Amino acid sequence: MRTVRYLKRRTGRVYVVGPPVEYRMPLPRLLALAQTRGEGRMVADARELERVKRIDHAMEAAVGAAGGNVRYVSVLQAMCDAGRCVTQTRSGAPAQFDYGHLTYEGALLVVDRLRDAGRLKLLAQANAASRRSLSGAPERRK
């Protein structure tokens, strides 16, 4: 939180991005194993889901306590719902290239899911306002 406090004093808005789901082995390997077992595009077992949920909730609470111009973005909530996590994009690309880092396609998937949930509209509006305040341009209202 020391970094958040530092940034909060120096910028219009701070976004803290939470962790994605993690797996005990690389996701592409889990998907390949599922394929060889005939399970197809199954949702891989997110064995680390409960641990990452605790981290996600703790980070969200800490950021909420910081108040003001600090916002939390939960990647975990964008990827997982009711214990099932998205593992592949619509084109079949793995969402993560190892146990917990997003692929390029996985990152686009997360952005799409955040946008569909209405989270990115708020981020885009806040970013535009921050850019205007930094540039000294007057704020435009729609």
Rank of each mutant, 00 (worst) to 15 (best):
A129G: 00
K142D: 12
R140H: 06
D112T: 07
L123N: 03
S74C: 09
S130F: 07
L109E: 12
D45N: 12
R9A: 08
A78S: 15
E60K: 15
V52E: 05
F97G: 08
R131A: 15
P19S: 11
D116N: 11
P19I: 08
D56W: 14
A66E: 10
G40H: 09
E139W: 03
A78T: 12
R113P: 09
D56L: 02
S135F: 09
L109Q: 14
L33V: 07
R84K: 11
P138H: 13
R5A: 11
V21P: 00
D45S: 10
A62C: 11
V43Y: 15
R51E: 11
S130N: 13
L76H: 13
K8M: 00
M25P: 00
C85P: 01
V73R: 14
P20A: 13
R71H: 10
M79C: 04
L102G: 01
G92M: 10
R119F: 03
A46R: 06
A34L: 13
R24M: 05
L7K: 02
G64Y: 01
A137W: 14
I55M: 06
R140V: 10
R51K: 12
D56S: 11
G68M: 01
V14T: 07
A95P: 04
P26A: 03
K121R: 14
H101P: 04
H57C: 02
R51L: 08
G136I: 07
P94C: 06
A124H: 11
V63L: 03
L7H: 00
R10I: 01
V17H: 04
R131L: 15
G64V: 07
A58M: 10
H101C: 00
V43L: 12
C80F: 04
K121L: 11
R51P: 00
A137C: 10
G38T: 09
T3K: 01
M79A: 06
R2G: 08
F97N: 08
A61M: 12
A137H: 14
S91L: 10
D45E: 14
R24T: 10
K8W: 03
A117L: 02
S74D: 09
V63E: 03
N127F: 08
G136M: 06
Y72R: 12
R51D: 07
V17E: 04
V63M: 07
P26I: 06
A107L: 01
A34N: 13
Q77E: 14
V70T: 14
R140G: 07
C85Q: 03
V75Q: 04
P20N: 08
G12P: 02
G136N: 03
G12A: 06
A32Q: 12
A129N: 02
R37H: 11
A34V: 04
G40D: 07
M25F: 01
D116Q: 12
G12Y: 00
F97C: 01
A95N: 05
V70G: 03
Q125F: 05
M79P: 05
Y99N: 14
R131M: 15
V63Q: 06
G92Y: 06
N127C: 05
Y104Q: 07
R47N: 11
A107I: 02
V70D: 00
V86E: 14
A95S: 09
D112Q: 10
A126I: 10
R54I: 09
